[in-house]
């Protein structure tokens, strides 16, 4: 019986470990933060330098806040990660992209915007953080 218990225990560890490991990877406190400053704090960002070397391409006016296309490119050397936040969303942190092994610091995606707001991009390069914003006028709420 003891051996079986041990084996069952071992089995459950093996089966459950990947799920727990994945859950641990996701920055829950940053994504569930209701204020932008709180989200950046949980991303362990303290100081950001405003940079013209971050390009944000998004529409000036978005008809539908549920689908706002965003293109982000960092021209900052050694860019490791690009985070996208929307200041006035119920949870401002949208995504954090980490690049490696030849991936360009570039991403295109589509995001939800609850109301007219700035899209804030934060780039991590080494131990430094750089930022740029782009205002988007939202005509129809997209968060529901």
């Amino acid at each position: 019986m003891r051996r079986r218990d041990f084996l069952l225990g071992l089995f459950s560890v093996i089966v459950l470990a990947p799920i727990n490991a994945l859950a641990a990877l996701w920055n829950k406190s940053a994504f569930e933060a209701a204020q932008l400053a709180e989200a950046t704090k949980h991303l362990t960002i303290d100081t950001e330098i405003i940079s013209q070397d971050i390009e944000i391409i998004a529409p000036e006016r978005a008809e539908n806040g549920a689908v706002v296309p965003v293109e982000v490119r960092s021209n900052i050397a050694n860019t490791e990660a690009i985070a996208i936040l929307v200041e006035k969303n119920p949870t401002p942190l949208i995504a954090n992209f980490m690049f490696s092994n030849g991936a360009e610091p570039y991403v295109v995606t589509r995001i939800k915007m609850a109301e007219t707001s700035e899209i804030k991009v934060i780039v991590k390069a080494g131990s430094q953080y750089f930022t740029q914003v782009k205002n988007v006028v939202v005509l129809e709420n997209g968060c529901g």
């Binding site: 994504f31 969303n89 949208i94 995504a95 980490m98 490696s100 995606t109 589509r110 939800k112």
Partner: peptide, 12 residues
């Protein structure tokens, strides 16, 4: 691995 992304509910 070339990209690791974490997403919240704000992706369409």
């Amino acid at each position: 691995t070339v990209l690791e992304a974490q997403w919240g509910t704000g992706i369409s």
